[in-house]
């Protein structure tokens, strides 16, 4: 690359970065303004004075009980992650490393079921959960994760296929059971992939909106996404400076998690697209 090209590249990169960062920056900016200042025209760029009270106000609002909703979300997200990791790896192992009749069919179902839109299940699942007495509890949001998530099964199967066959066959010869191989060889070897699954299902549960919207009927069991929407749409409405403060509170944990696990994230996503 010559100088001119390099300059142009940098310029384009800066533009793109600005476009992608601006909404988040503006969110933080607005969250630190007084309401009157937030709606001022022309817009005030630097809030004056910095109004940290907005955060205290949001956190003190009984309609937005952050610690309660964060806890609810955390419980659902952690259990989903745990369930997805355990069940998906078991199933993936069976599809990749055990030879049995019908596994081709099961793999076909795994692939096909990724295409089925959630609304098809919405109503009958609601009925099933009602019969089980689960409506109003968080069970519908994490129990299904323990029955294998197609996308993660697919992902882990691809990982397991890259591990040489000889390894598991040798262990079998030594009298090791399949469970032993899975637990003692496969899981440690594919820990990065497993973490990807855990991270993704954690994020998926954290960001899920439609599921909690349908299944959680009691305010005390709401997750953050639903709580944020409720906070916005409550009678009388909520001002933008407070809404932005609430949004910052919800986004912050995700971004922290991302910065702690940046490599896992990027690697994980990168592998999803590869055959």
């Amino acid at each position: 690359m010559n100088r001119k090209q390099r300059l142009l590249t940098h310029l384009l990169l800066l533009l793109a970065a600005a476009a992608y960062a601006a909404p988040l920056l503006w969110m933080i900016d607005t969250s630190l303004k007084r309401e009157v200042q937030a709606v001022q025209i022309p817009p005030v760029i630097i809030p004056h004075p910095l109004r940290w009270q907005n955060y205290r106000h949001v956190l003190g609002d009984p309609q937005f009980d952050f610690s309660l909703f964060a806890r609810n979300t955390l419980i659902i997200a952690s259990l989903s992650a745990l369930g997805a990791m355990l069940s998906s790896s078991l199933v993936a192992y069976s599809l990749a490393k055990i030879r049995w009749r019908g596994r081709g069919l099961v793999f076909g179902i795994v692939l096909a079921s990724m295409m089925i839109p959630f609304p098809v299940f919405m109503v009958p699942l609601y009925r099933i959960f009602r019969e089980l007495g689960w409506i109003g509890t968080n069970l519908p949001l994490w129990v299904p994760a323990f029955f294998g998530i197609p996308f993660f099964i697919f992902l882990l199967r691809q990982f397991y296929l890259t591990i040489p066959r000889e390894l598991s066959e040798a262990a079998l010869m030594d009298g090791c059971s399949h469970f032993g191989i899975w637990w003692r060889i496969m899981l440690p070897l594919t820990r990065p992939a497993l973490l990807v699954v855990g991270l993704f299902s954690f994020m998926g549960a954290w960001n899920n909106f439609l599921g909690p919207l349908v299944y959680l009927t009691h305010q005390s069991s709401f997750t953050l996404s639903v709580a944020l929407q409720v906070y916005q749409s409550r009678s009388g409405g909520t001002s933008y400076n407070l809404l932005m403060a609430a949004s910052v509170l919800i986004i912050a944990p995700v971004l922290v998690l991302f910065f702690l696990a940046q490599k896992t994230f990027i690697r994980g996503i990168a592998t999803t697209g590869l055959k």
């Binding site: 952690s78 998690l257 696990a261």
Partner: peptide
């Protein structure tokens, strides 16, 4: 990568 993953695991547990 494994080390990074290890850190992640610890971080997640710590956060929890």
């Amino acid at each position: 990568f494994a080390r990074a993953a290890h850190r992640v695991a610890i971080a997640m547990v710590a956060i929890g």
